[in-house]
Design a protein around this nucleic acid. Structure first.
Length: 289
DNA sequence: CCTTTCACCTGTATGC
DNA sequence: TGCATACAGGTGAAAG
């Protein structure tokens, strides 16, 4: 499940393999992959043909490739999306959705997505100074690694929300890039239960949580970098980091790395939350004031 | 306006 | 063996 660190690994691969190259042809093999590109597959291909990719950019979990036009190629990997750099004409992957070929005859860029929660579109850029971002994601907040991210403003906005801390961490309009896995890991590092009301958090605790989120995602990125295969732009959710370094996610009944208490799994929004019942006690009066 | 819930997907694991 | 069900979960539309 790609979150910020995994998407950043992909961005770096795209920067290396496709920046500066000119699109020869775009082929859409599954309409769902471009469902947010409202003009449809033919227009999608026409907007890309002959355009040169400038660089690879990212905000939170979104990736984009600015073109030598007012547009960018915008992508979200969803649950299972992959952007792969492959030899031209190699056998199609089982869930191949979109294929871009280039005028230099070099490696293709392929969007492969089993569960089809991911998508790709071509959209104009718009100003969200100091950055320019694709118009469809103008509502997404900065991620905590962007220089423009304002820690003080985040604390103010967070305390203003009338919700629980984990819900707030997953709200991409408040802070982007954090998903279910790193939310749980950051909360464990900060010794906070996900159902704590945002309004009860002190400034120092918010700062500690933010630092924990940055720390765990930095460590994940470092490990993702080591397992990165240079021939592919590859998200591999099962490799290295996930096996070795997670403290709570997916570790039900296994001992807490701090105190030894068995990690518990709780249901949360039709999915899972993992936490240590001793390090992260559930608040007595959830959602109060 | 703000917060919460739900639909969208398919491969894998588990239960009867 | 076969069938049903649970689970993985990010996003935006819809509902509350």
């Amino acid at each position: 499940m790609p979150e910020l660190p995994e998407v950043e690994v992909v961005r770096r691969g795209l920067q290396h393999w496709v920046a500066g190259r000119t699109v020869a042809h775009a082929e859409v093999l599954h309409p769902r992959a471009i469902r947010r590109h409202l003009p449809g597959a033919e227009e999608f291909a026409a907007r890309l043909k002959g355009r040169t990719i400038g660089s690879a950019e990212r905000r939170g979990k979104y990736l984009w490739l600015p073109l030598d036009s007012p547009d960018a190629v915008l992508a979200h990997l969803g649950m299972s999306g992959q952007l792969l750099v492959t030899e031209p004409g190699s056998a199609p992957e089982r869930h191949l959705r979109i294929r871009l070929s280039f005028t230099d005859g070099g490696p293709e860029l392929r969007f492969v997505d089993q569960r089809t929660f991911g998508h790709v579109l071509v959209a104009p850029m718009t100003a969200r100074l100091p950055r320019w971002v694709p118009e469809p994601i103008a509502h997404i907040a900065a991620d905590p690694f962007e220089p423009v991210f304002d820690d003080e403003q985040f604390a103010i906005d967070l305390r203003r929300r009338r919700t629980e801390i984990k819900r707030a961490l997953l709200d991409q309009s408040l802070i982007s890039g954090v998903g279910n896995i790193y939310a749980d890991e950051a909360l464990w590092r900060a010794r906070l239960h996900g159902t704590r009301s945002t309004a009860t958090l002190t400034r120092p605790k918010i700062a500690e949580l933010l630092a924990a989120a940055r720390e765990v995602m930095t460590e994940a990125l470092d490990e993702g970098g080591t397992s990165f295969d240079s021939l592919y732009v590859n998200v591999n959710g099962e490799s290295g980091y996930f096996e070795r370094s997670l403290a709570v996610y997916g570790r039900r009944d296994q001992p807490c790395r701090r105190c030894g208490a068995p990690i518990v799994r709780e249901s949360f929004m039709n999915r899972s939350s993992y936490s240590c019942p001793r390090c992260q006690p559930r608040p007595r009066a959830p959602r109060k004031g």
